[in-house]
């Protein structure tokens, strides 16, 4: 059992607040992804859990044990680093065996575990090599094998795939998912890549400016962003936003069109819709097409609505040229509304 509980953890460097009172619970065997742009505090949070950074305040619990006063080696964690951190003066075998030797395990046990994890990561033929003789992808495999060999309760991963090229990243992503699911460890995985986050996570914690904005299942984060930030950060292209004015009768005025909206006390809201959730038809929001990008599966339109950009994903056989004016009708069940001041969902 290795449930991770983070209670009111804050961290500041000098006058800069990297983390504002974070509360987060990660269930046993859960795959949690911390997602956010660089500088949002996700790596700091991971390093606090690892014990590489001391929180300014708050508590960290792993498996029912309070660990925030403990050094990394006493926390029952293993970590995979962004630059792999494969020790250059040791062979692959010795790298994987490093932690096991520190634990003073018997020789046969060390050999058994190294061999098993090496086979798991498909690097059994590289055990005698040094880091300098490995490719980036192979180093990555060694780093993961080294963490798995510890058979830890928790594996922490700090952007492990960000230094690989696109194709390799795809391959490793699928492999990591399989291996980690089989190992039944609790995993915390830091990334800025939303596709990686969506594909790997049981739950995603979207972070912004030192806070967790939303922690939910990937589909939930995508469909029902808890805040304007989440909608604009996740999804490629991101969500469209248009200012809306109260029009009475539960209707809201959006770019000259009256749409059904929520009961809200405010006079102004923000209307939001994902680019793929509009249909081209006779009715809807008037949009002037500026750029047409055929992408094969579909066509991406960049339009202008009331002087602002509005993106729409349409079927690829739709004949449209820049300058055309289209009517884009939002799918009613996919429309979301945000409070323009707090930025939170209504």
């Amino acid at each position: 059992m290795a449930e991770i509980v983070i209670k009111k953890v804050a961290k500041s460097f000098g006058g800069f607040h990297a983390l504002h009172s974070i509360d987060l619970t990660i269930a046993d065997q859960e795959f949690m992804v911390l997602l956010g742009a660089s500088g949002c505090g996700k790596t700091t949070l991971l390093r606090i859990i690892a014990g590489l950074e001391t929180p300014s305040q708050g508590e960290v619990w792993i498996g029912g044990r309070r660990v925030d006063g403990l050094p990394p080696r006493e926390r029952g964690i293993a970590m995979v680093f962004q630059n792999y951190a494969v020790f250059p003066h040791l062979t692959v075998f010795e790298n994987i065996a490093f932690g096991l030797r520190m634990k003073k395990l018997p020789r046969q046990e060390i050999e058994r575990r190294v061999t098993r994890t090496a086979e798991l990561m498909h690097i059994e033929q590289l055990l005698k090599r040094y880091s300098g003789q490995l490719s980036g992808g192979q180093r990555q495999r060694v780093a993961v094998a080294r963490a798995l060999a510890m058979e830890p309760d928790v594996i922490l991963m700090d952007e492990p795939l960000s230094n690989l090229d696109a194709l390799l990243r795809l391959e490793m992503r699928a492999e990591l998912k399989g291996v980690l699911a089989a190992s039944k460890t609790t995993t915390i995985y830091v990334t800025h890549d939303q596709v990686e986050a969506m594909s790997l996570a049981d739950r995603i914690s979207v972070m912004n400016a030192g806070k967790i904005v939303q922690a939910a299942r990937p589909v939930e984060v995508y469909r029902n962003p808890a805040a304007r930030f989440v909608g604009s950060f996740i999804g490629n292209p991101p969500m469209n936003f248009i200012p809306a004015k109260r029009a009475g009768d539960g209707k809201w005025q959006v770019a000259g069109v009256a749409l059904d909206g929520p009961q809200a006390s405010r006079d102004r809201l923000e209307f939001a819709i994902r680019p793929e959730d509009v249909t081209v038809g006779a009715e809807g929001i008037p949009a002037t097409v500026r750029v047409v990008e055929p992408l094969g599966v579909h066509t991406l339109l960049t339009c202008e609505v009331e002087g602002a950009l509005f993106r729409a994903v349409v079927e690829s056989d739709l004949a449209v040229t820049p300058g055309d004016t289209l009517r884009l009708a939002p799918k009613p069940d996919r429309v979301r509304w945000f409070d323009p001041e707090s930025g939170m969902a209504v």
Binding site: A50, G51, L52, P72, R73, A78, M79, F98, K103
Partner: peptide, 27 residues
């Protein structure tokens, strides 16, 4: 010497001195 190497050693069961002796010093 990237600090990550030392940190990796810490997460693998070393204290500061052991990490220095086993990882930094040989390098």
């Amino acid at each position: 010497i990237p600090i990550e190497l030392e940190e990796a050693a810490w997460t693998l069961g070393c204290n500061r001195w052991q990490a220095f002796r086993k990882v930094v010093l040989p390098l």
